[in-house]
């Protein structure tokens, strides 16, 4: 059996949970087994996970699981994996997943591959999974040789696919021990898609000259329903918040479309973004290294080009 842990921050599933279930279902099909999904705490509409391939959803409704606690969550996942006889456990390679996957692997004496970027290859007894390494500069293939396998899935690596009907939700009644972690508050930016999940990212660098000029970047992002990002010096100079910093020492992303505005394309920047499906570079310097990593390029002054591009997208949308 394949067991997927579907994360539900503040009771809601995000895209990463649907991706994990879709992935789990495909792995289960390859192995000819069922895909069951575990949810923890108070969750809204757990049955919908059936649409992405869960044959059954197991929920431990104890409200102690509503907040982040890597230890208690990992213990619950490992216990359910054992009692249901799961041989493959799938989690999201999210901020919470990163706190949990390693713990689950140790509890189950299992090999872990974190941040998988594609489906595994399963043949005979061999189970191999690929992931990006060297911050996207290379791809590694890992063989998991233990009987139980844990895989955490990189965001945007697979597309959520609806393949079935809402599932039956079975409540399991075990309860969490009193943990040693207490969540005090959560601050989220409402209304924007977090960078790791974003399908379109509009990113800008030092070519913007100063934070007061970001209006044209935000207009473009708004037109595309995109999330904004920036290069490291931009975040370091406090032109933009730190959570927008992408690259080797920032967030690594793999959106469908990455639009780079006034960014030179230093190796450390490219490392975090070169897994994007399509890259558009706008830079006045035709020799900027970023053009080598780009699919489409526009050589010229960003202050003229970006508003023009926004207008073109608006026109395109109006005609759709």
């Amino acid at each position: 059996m394949v067991l997927v842990f579907a994360e539900s921050p503040r009771g809601q599933f995000k895209k990463s949970a649907f991706e994990a279930v879709t992935y789990g279902k495909k792995v289960a099909d390859m192995m000819g087994v069922a895909c069951e999904v575990l949810t923890l705490g108070t969750v809204q509409d757990a049955a919908q996970l059936g649409k992405y391939g869960a044959s059954k959803v197991l929920n431990i409704a104890d409200t102690a699981y509503n907040d982040f606690d890597s230890q208690e969550q990992a213990a619950a996942i490992a216990d359910v994996a054992k009692s249901r006889g799961a041989t493959v456990i799938i989690l999201s390679h999210s901020s919470t997943g990163k706190s949990i996957s390693g713990r689950v692997a140790i509890r189950l004496d299992a090999g872990l591959v974190s941040g998988a970027n594609a489906l595994p290859t399963i043949s005979g007894g061999a189970f191999t999974v690929t992931k990006g390494v060297f911050s996207g500069k290379a791809i590694a293939e890992y063989a998991i040789t233990s009987p139980i396998k844990v895989v955490s899935l990189m965001g945007n690596a697979v597309k959520p696919e609806v393949s079935g009907q809402p599932a039956h939700v079975e409540n399991i009644t075990t309860s969490a021990a009193k943990g040693r972690i207490r969540v005090k508050s959560v601050k989220t930016q409402e209304g924007t898609v977090p960078l790791p999940e974003a399908e379109i990212v509009v990113s800008a660098g030092r070519g913007m000259k100063g934070p007061e000029n970001w209006g044209i970047v935000e207009d473009l992002a708004k037109t595309l329903n995109a999330t904004t990002a920036c290069s490291r010096p931009v975040a370091d100079s406090h032109w933009r918040p730190h959570h927008e910093h992408v690259g080797q020492t920032g967030i690594a992303i793999r959106p469908n479309l990455y639009i780079a505005i006034g960014i030179s394309g230093a190796i450390q920047h490219l490392a975090g973004v070169n897994n994007s499906k399509v890259i558009v570079v706008i830079n006045k310097d035709s020799e900027a290294p970023f053009f080598k990593a780009a699919d489409y390029g526009v050589v010229g002054d960003l202050f003229e080009i970006v508003p023009r591009l926004t207008d073109a997208f608006k026109k395109f949308k109006a005609n759709q």
Binding site: P9, K14, S16, F68, S94, S95, T96, R180, I181, R182, V183, K184, S185, V186, K187, T188, Q189, T192, V193, P194, L195, P196, E197, H243
Partner: peptide, 12 residues
Amino acid sequence: REIEGGIETLEV
């Protein structure tokens, strides 16, 4: 701690 699209404050 950094979470997707936000910050969580915790005591451990």
